[in-house]
Design a protein around this nucleic acid. Structure first.
Length: 365
DNA sequence: AACTGATGCAACCGCTTTTCT
DNA sequence: TAGAAAAGCGGTTGCATCAGT
């Protein structure tokens, strides 16, 4: 076990930050940027470790933070996202501009968990708590422990040589902790209230050209996580053209209109930081892997062992109960060969990191 | 007014992942 | 390619505040 070097320094201050310290840090970063965090305290004249400075900046001093109480919409979104992502606070925070993972984590632990329990919903599994168990804190705690244990076991399993995504996705069956699904920005796994809605999220299977229904073709009922009151089909498409390589940009207006896509980025990041690096060949490979995957779903006999166990572990009849679920958060337009996404900050995290996992994992199938 | 328990929040800690050399 | 350093993440802790007695 290695401790951060700064942790050994007994001279460093700990605990709450004084206004003077805040001012020093703020002034320094405003003027010079943070650069290497370990050198920030020295340069800023602070008796803190770099880690502490980083945390203070991220959680408190950052100018783009939205302070104040969470709105009902934000709370609902957190509940929905937690149902999909579990305790991945940073990924949840990425969907809520101006909110930090720490803030969301605190809200969840202090408030939202309680609210869900009051509504008879297990905050860990997001399932309805059976009447007999409802109201029993002991049972609730036991459920949490079981779920945590199950989750831990699933995650431990992923440490072996089996494909990353398939193994991690298998934990969806009990916990919905899935890099496979978490890799999808929320608007992609959401769907419109009507299958005929023009805003439905459509991904095409590249070579077969056949759309597949995520509710019936996918081994788990993803859409019910987010819109439990609707039971319509959502098609999963992989776009076939280079528009998939759309370079995301951020529009503060949040309008669905493609005209509103601008070149500005949140947090003042440079546009190229949102650049998606994927060649046409890579994309086609990914797309064909989807076809393979789709084929295996319909031909489990020929499926490799790892994939088969993956499907066997799925429980397509899971229903997630999320109260006060709002409508779709944000939907990309899909009109034939022109797919554009409306929330690049979400898309960026998806493409830059998770699609790599996706392609890497499908490479094992 | 004093005490106590509950609550919310900020910060810390330990670990993992990523980046650098 | 390996090791070290830095960054990032999630769980936990500690403290200030508030409400109830």
């Amino acid at each position: 076990m290695r401790r951060h070097s700064c942790c050994y320094n007994q001279k460093l201050r700990k605990g709450l930050w004084s206004p003077e310290e805040d001012e020093k840090l703020l002034m320094h970063i405003t003027k010079y940027g943070h650069g290497c965090w370990s050198s920030v305290p020295k340069q800023a004249g602070l008796q803190r470790c770099g880690k502490s400075c980083r945390l203070r900046w991220i959680n408190y001093l950052r100018p783009d933070l939205k302070r104040g109480t969470f709105s009902q919409e934000e709370e609902n979104l957190i509940i929905e996202l937690h149902g999909v992502l579990g305790n991945r606070w940073s990924q949840i925070a990425a969907q809520l501009p101006g909110r930090t993972d720490n803030e969301i984590k605190n809200l969840w632990n202090s408030c939202l968990k309680k609210k869900l329990r009051q509504r008879g919903i297990d905050p860990v599994t997001h399932k309805k708590i059976p009447e007999a168990e409802n109201g029993s804190e002991d049972n609730d705690n036991r459920n949490q422990e079981k779920a945590a244990e199950a989750s831990s076991n699933e995650l431990n399993k992923s440490d072996d040589a089996t494909p990353y995504v398939l193994n991690r996705a298998s934990s969806m069956s009990c916990h919905h902790h899935s890099d496979f699904m978490s890799g999808f920005p929320i608007q992609m796994i959401n769907h419109a209230s009507s299958s005929s809605d023009s805003n439905s999220v459509n991904w095409y299977s590249h070579s077969s050209g056949r759309p597949f229904d995520i509710n019936t073709d996918f081994p788990f009922n993803t859409t019910s996580i987010l819109t439990p009151t609707t039971a319509t089909a959502t098609n999963l498409f992989l776009p076939t053209d280079s528009s998939f390589l759309y370079k995301p940009s951020f529009s503060s207006s949040s309008s669905n209109s493609p005209e509103n896509i601008s070149n500005t980025t949140p947090y003042g990041l440079k546009e190229e930081q949102y650049q998606i690096h994927m060649s046409i060949e890579e994309l086609e490979e990914l797309s064909s892997k989807w076809d393979e995957y789709y084929y295996y779903l319909h031909n489990p006999v020929s499926m490799p062992a790892s994939s088969e166990s993956f499907c066997n572990e799925m429980k397509p009849d899971i229903h997630y109960l999320i109260p006060d679920t709002p409508g779709p958060i944000m939907l990309p337009h899909h009109n034939n060969n022109n797919t554009k996404f409306q929330e690049p900050s979400q898309m960026a995290s998806f493409f830059s990191k998770d699609i790599q996992k996706l392609t890497a994992a499908f490479g094992h199938i």
